[in-house]
Design a binder for these strands. Sequence first.
RNA 1: GCCCCUAUCGUCUAGAGGCCUAGGACACCAGGUUUUCAUCCUGGCGACACGGGUUCGAAUCCCGUUGGGGGUGCCA
Length: 532
Amino acid sequence: MEFRARFAPSPTGQVHIGNIRTAIFNWLATRHNKGTFLLRIEDTDLERSTQDAIDKLLDCMKWLGLDYDEEIMYQTRQSDLHKQAAKKLVEQGSAYPLNPAEEHSPILFRLPYECDGMKFVRQVGRVRLELAPGSAVQLNQAGVVYQTVSPKGKTVENAATLAGFKDLEILGADGSVLFRLDETTRGQLPSNPQEKMTVENAAALSFVRREVFYHDLVKGDLAKPLDSMKDFIIVRSDGSPVFHLANVYDDMQQRVTHIVRGDDHVENTYRHLFLFEALGFTPPQYAHLPMIVNKAGKPYSKRDGDAFVGDFREKGFLPQALFNYLSLLGWSPGDGREKMSKEELVEAFTIERALRSPAQFDMAKLTNMNALYIAELPEEEFRRAIGPYLEKFCLEAVGSPLLDQVAALMHSRTKTFADVAHWNYFFRSAEKLEYDAKALKKFLSDDMIRRSVSEFAEILETLPERCSAAEIESKIRAVEEKYGIPQGKLNQPLRIAVTGSTIGAGIYETIELIGSAESALRIRKALERKAE
RNA sequence: GCCCCUAUCGUCUAGAGGCCUAGGACACCAGGUUUUCAUCCUGGCGACACGGGUUCGAAUCCCGUUGGGGGUGCCA
């Protein structure tokens, strides 16, 4: 069977990891099934949709390798077709204006009373609903409004579509039938939504409950009582079609067979099923993905500035790492594999294995995975990849003859490319070097250490500019021996003096790269600084 | 309020009635390798939300409670 899925974002800002995760799952499911992956830009919210957002979206998709197969569909360009569809729905009685008297009225979709034949509707049985004593029930062809008493004793108003109340009987306190809904009386109900027929002194509602049901590929069997639903707006008062109509129409036109989208659309599905039916189409298969939540366990909001795909790129994450990580949020291959190539993911991915509950985004795990991907980068590629980050975070390194060697030395220590910000001590002159004051105090206070470090600096000055790490080590050992300092004790003080920091690559290699004279200079500076 | 969904270590997850004394990964802690850091290796800490059922047997099935999320007439 043909498999056609789509990613249908609305371009109203930055691309969010939740959105892109939906795109990834769609893409994986499609590629796994050798289907067609479509991209549709749902830009019908004219107020908030921008070209800039569209550009960013396309950029993110390209970065992550989410390629699509057919022309991009822009929903605004479908507008006329949507309006025609709305007109057709009104003509066939599937939709009606909220205010027939007004020229500009929203159009509502009518949940059909005659729906027992539909594949996604089933009867649950006759139910009885107690009303607030002596309350009135209002009804028309759009729906029923009635009062019930909440557990706390408050009277609350309920409204639902007429279709929710098959064979409705409004009962009085004595059990008498005040009103019975049948073919004849249904025709007599006001067709104008603004007009209502009122039944006074009602005590209970009795009706055959029906529910809408469907099988969700990830959430399983889902159902919702029809009497908890209302007719819904499909055309705004300004004549523009809303999401429900546009979305369903376009899915229909693009012959989408599988809709993979966020959890927040589950409730829409019950309505869309009827829309497909009214438009004469078989509904597609649905799969609703749980949301991704932030560190606080809450859904990401626009305020969570660190959840945009573009930010991950800027922070130095590899697209394949982000892709891999995101694919594991709410899905797993089931065999314990985590680090997987795109090909392996495509091979293993089935939407049915997606989880039903929300997943929390974990920066630490992403970072770990990114480090794994960086580590396996060939040296040459690593050098190429850090380029843009050097320009941003470590300008001194750009063009330096030392760069390649520094990169090789620091490769295994790089978790995100933004880490190159810590490389500047290799390239910065002694004057500009920044020192970790605490470490300086800790490792360069002892007199014996200071004298020996100073002596090592003197030795360095006599050495050739590029001296091997092994040679440097032997010189350090010699100084340690002379002063009776335990082997290796000088490493850390020297590291502070030369790099300003307690962490970094091997100090011998570091001195080798920085050069004898420059290293000696730095040691002297550090000693001066401490002396101040 | 009403409707829908959901609940395994701090986090991501394995688990589809006996293979579970609940497995893996990240994080964390301890030890080892290493001149520090990172890598790598070993070990440790650590969970089936709660209460009822069903069953010879439940993390797995059912009901309830609680927590979380979503929806609830002109956002998508």
